[in-house]
Design a protein around this nucleic acid. Structure first.
Length: 362
DNA sequence: AACACGGGGTG
DNA sequence: CACCCAGTGTT
């Protein structure tokens, strides 16, 4: 058999399947590299259904790379609030400036050129190169890793560097025999997203079932192999929601650009669980002294690597005190309307909890 | 190689 | 509740 025949057959089968079963997604209605880039950044570790409304709003407000590059970062963050991994928004903005400044507003069309953009790693570079420019560039994401590990019976931990290297090699062998490469890469991911799912895969609908090693060995539910994950650490916090009585503005703090919820605003939070200590800590943060905090509720927020148990305390003040420069993790304090700034989902939930009317216990 | 980084859908 | 998602950058 000629070298590459098996790859060519698989690629053809999968691409043909994709033509019949592809979902109609907003970013599949364009060949604009900018729009495809935005979608790929949003889709990092984020599901299609979550991304769609964000993508629509974002493209409406920032229709091209120039409009994104010239927009204030705060506006970009506001359109990102709730999506998570906020560093992506900052890097997207920085990369837009890169494209305008270094490439005259024209997107790079090679993997190497794309890789140089902030926030574009090996996956995203392969995605843009293949989907927007039809370059025969491979890509491996969670879906592709799952499909390939099952189809070829790969029993090594897919998180390991060596296994990843092997997966990228296979993906490369396949995409080089595919036409067009962009459709093939999307087909691979689409299969993983809709048929070759992590649990309860629909093997009876799978175009690759006949040649699937995992299927043949009745091992579909044991592949891919993924190493054990660490349990998230629990952190106890107190959030202080201080409202200015006349204006109803709230004391909000902006987080440092690096780290958790980078660049977003929230009611000041300090580690710990007792209100007395919190009051002192707030002073250290530059907040008004001696506000009377009253506990009004509890919010539990789950992240991949953290569990945040937040006690929500509320206070009112008659005067909007002059604010000092806060200490870490905050960079600035402001009396503001929460609707006017970018909030994390945690901050939103804290504010909602503080807004609930207090019920008497009896 | 390990870790930080959000949020939500799914079984 | 556990799992994991169209990953990247830092340490």
């Amino acid at each position: 058999m000629m070298e590459g025949d098996e790859e060519r057959a698989l690629a053809h089968t999968l691409t043909a399947w994709f033509e019949r079963h592809r979902r109609d997604l907003p970013w599949r209605r364009t060949r604009d590299p900018y729009a495809i880039w935005v979608s790929e950044i949003m889709l990092q570790q984020t599901r299609v259904d979550t991304v769609i409304p964000y993508y629509q709003r974002f493209l409406g407000r920032f229709p091209d790379v120039a409009s994104l590059a010239s927009a204030p970062l705060d506006h970009v963050l506001q359109h990102w609030q709730g999506l998570g991994y906020y560093r992506r928004a900052r890097q997207l903005h920085a990369a837009a400036e890169q494209v305008v400044a270094d490439h005259g507003g024209v997107f790079p069309n090679t993997v190497e050129g794309l890789r140089a953009l902030s926030g574009v790693g090996p996956y995203t570079a392969g995605a843009i190169a293949s989907i927007a420019f039809d370059a025969p560039a491979p890509l491996v994401d969670g879906n592709v890793a799952r499909v390939l590990s099952r189809r070829f019976g790969i029993w090594d931990d897919i998180k390991q560097g060596r296994t990843q290297k092997e997966l990228w090699r296979i993906a490369g062998d396949l995409v080089r025999q595919a036409a067009p490469p962009g459709a093939f890469n999307q087909a691979l991911m689409e299969l993983g997203a809709t048929v070759c799912t992590p649990r309860s895969p629909k093997c009876e609908q799978c175009p690759l079932a006949a040649d699937c090693v995992a299927r043949a060995e009745d091992a579909v539910d044991r592949l891919p192999v993924v190493g054990a994950k660490k349990a998230p650490r629990t952190v106890r916090l107190v959030a202080a929601v201080v409202t200015h009585e006349r204006t109803q503005r709230v004391l909000l703090a902006q987080r440092h650009a690096d780290g958790l919820f980078g660049g977003l605003w929230e009611p000041p939070m300090v580690e710990g669980d007792d209100l007395e200590t919190t009051r002192g800590q707030l002073g250290r943060l530059g907040a008004p002294p001696s506000v009377e905090l009253r506990e009004v509720g509890e919010v539990t927020h789950l992240l991949t690597h953290r569990r945040l148990d937040v006690t929500v305390a509320r206070a009112h003040t008659a005067r909007a005190h002059r604010l000092r420069k806060p200490s870490e993790p905050y960079v600035q304090l402001r009396w503001t309307d929460p609707a006017e700034v970018a909030l994390s989902t945690l901050a939103r939930r804290v504010l909602e909890t503080a807004d609930q009317p207090q019920e008497r216990l009896f």
